[in-house]
């Protein structure tokens, strides 16, 4: 409970900090007042239309990545699993790349996230068809790797054949992952999918706990494995597909956050679910603040900084784990 309170307080503090961080340097009190009162001044428009959706998206995306990372690690009983593993983020990225390449995004602002979501749905259908009806985890990993490889090959093909260098540059920058210039339209587009994904993933706790003892033991304890796997895949696809659709690919959150919090919840997969959702939200909020503070004049991409922070953090964790192993 103390951990929950700490994480909630951390998220709340980072959320407020995210709201008062930005290109226009305004005293924090004044900025928050403009946000709440909404008097039609330019400042209140900035707060309500730019910074609020940005902070909301950071929290939503972080929670989605953390939660699905924890669920996948629990299901696969492998601390190296991460949401990208089942190929949904790769498929969503391909959808976005196609939308940029075909110029759809120039005609219609939401074409990009919609195309990404559409491709994510296609990815899920393919995975479910490939992984087969029984509840095994190996087939799911193999299907995910196949989808990831296919999606990244097609993305490379689009880049390769792109006749338009501007579109190619756009694609490359989009793929780095960012929350700059997002609006409430993005929030409303992502929220229903994410909320559905959160509900589906949050309900897996019991089954994931039982899976600690292996698939056979879990089944004998009354866990319906095919149903659990279906909920896991669809829940992850909803949450991560929507996150990738609005912000591009952001790695390491789903990998590092569950790893970091596992010792603090006594390693129980069910407790790790909510903890990782909160921890993920905090990590993305913090990184999104950092990209604005570190290089305010350059558009430092969220995904780039996340990888820069995440990779050494992960190395440190591996080093620590190595010391504990025989």
């Amino acid at each position: 409970m103390r951990l929950a309170a700490t994480l909630v307080a951390l998220c709340a503090a980072l959320f407020v900090l995210s709201l008062v961080t930005g290109y226009a340097s305004v005293p924090a009190g004044q900025a928050l007042k403009a946000l709440i009162i909404g008097d039609g001044t330019p400042l209140s428009v900035v707060m309500r239309e730019i910074r609020l959706p940005r902070a909301l998206l950071a929290a939503m995306i972080g929670a989605s990545l953390g939660l699905s990372g924890a669920a996948l690690q629990g299901y696969l009983r492998n601390p190296l699993a991460e949401p990208g593993l089942i190929g949904i983020s790769g498929a969503a990225a391909l959808g976005a790349v196609l939308a940029i390449q075909t110029g759809l995004t120039l005609h219609f602002a939401l074409a990009l996230p919609l195309a990404a979501l559409g491709m994510a749905v296609l990815g899920v259908l393919l995975i479910l068809a490939l992984a087969g009806p029984r509840g095994g985890s190996i087939t799911l990993i193999l299907a995910g790797i196949a989808i990831s490889a296919l999606a990244s090959a097609l993305t490379s093909l689009v880049l390769n054949l792109s006749p338009n260098p501007f579109a190619a540059a756009d694609i490359v920058f989009w793929m780095m992952g960012s929350l700059a210039d997002r609006s409430f339209a993005h929030v409303w587009l992502a929220l229903p999918f994410m909320a559905l994904g959160w509900v589906m993933l949050a309900r897996l706790g019991r089954g994931l706990d039982a899976l600690t003892l292996g698939e056979d033991a879990a089944q004998a304890m009354g866990v319906h494995l095919p149903r659990l796997r279906l909920a896991l895949v669809i829940g992850t696809a909803c949450a991560v597909g929507a996150a990738t659709a609005v912000a591009g690919a952001i790695g390491f959150v789903g990998l590092v956050v569950p790893h970091l919090l596992r010792p603090l919840v006594g390693a129980r997969p069910s407790a790790l679910l909510w903890a990782s959702a909160l921890g993920g939200a905090a990590m993305v909020l913090a990184t999104d603040i950092a990209v604005r503070v570190a290089l305010p004049d350059r558009d430092l991409k969220l995904g780039v900084l996340m990888a820069l922070v995440g990779a050494p953090l992960f190395l440190h964790l591996i080093y620590k784990t190595r010391k504990e192993l025989p």
Binding site: T212, L213, D216, Q219, G222, R262, P263
Partner: peptide, 21 residues
């Protein structure tokens, strides 16, 4: 499935404890 789990307990041969609980 749920009723079976209240009638029979099963300890598989593969001894797996995946997490440091």
């Amino acid at each position: 499935l749920a009723e079976r789990a209240r009638i029979a307990a099963w300890m598989p041969q593969t001894r797996e404890i995946a997490w440091p609980v």
